[in-house]
Amino acid sequence: MNILVCVKQVADMEAKFKVAPDEKWFLEDDIAFKMNEYDEYAVEEAVKFRESMPDSNLIVLSIGAERVKEAIKKALAMGCDSGVHIKHDKEYMLDSYSKAYAIYEYAKDKNFDIIFTGMQSQDRGSAQVGIILAELLGIPSVSTIVSFKYESGEVEVKRELEGGKKGVVKLKTPALFTCQLGLNTPRYPTLPNIMKAKKKSIEEIEFSYSGNLAETDKIYFPEKKGGAMIIEGDPKELAQKVVAFLKDNGLA
């Protein structure tokens, strides 16, 4: 089996963001980057599947600046066989269609049987790249999966719907799946596997597609609507204020 998993490296969402002077992105100086959380589930599912299919090859792909190699290396340490880095210094200026197209250009003649991606990224949350990639490749795709089973060319997945309901879908490979949180339990790379991963190859490709359909005009902090009264200080005083708030509103 030929398997591909696509990952994105994103900022730690707990970071203190500062908008860059050009207002197109945030300043990256003091920001820690890590693998997009949804993609960790995609990598885990891809690795689990690869382990169940001995004669397989599992490639991890990422688009972005030099730093995204760290995310690729993590996926290699989790069990991917080799990496592909599509290089672009300002990945944040690319839209979903451009990124999907760049992956399509790479993947179109590789005959991948199964492609996994995260359901969305934690930064932009567009939930588009995987599905657009599948459409460009002309293969079916199922989004937001929380269960994946493969048996001789047929896949049965469960999609997460609203209110805890799931939709069960069967389809034949080749196919693409976007992974939801909770699909599995992503493994932590062990030290021996981190060492082993250092010997795995990462192919570099220059990003060449230009054809953004949507381009960030500006980013900004939302106006504080002045809703919340913010209180800080001694826990006892805070507790008294909360109790007073509850009493004022007939809640205690």
């Binding site: 969402m13 963001f17 945030f26 949350g125 381009e215 980013i219 900004y220 902090f221």
Partner: peptide
């Protein structure tokens, strides 16, 4: 649109 877990907002120019 929201950005970074709703901490920021984003607007985009579209073509076509």
């Amino acid at each position: 649109m929201p950005l970074c877990n709703n901490k920021l907002r984003r607007v985009a120019k579209t073509s076509g």
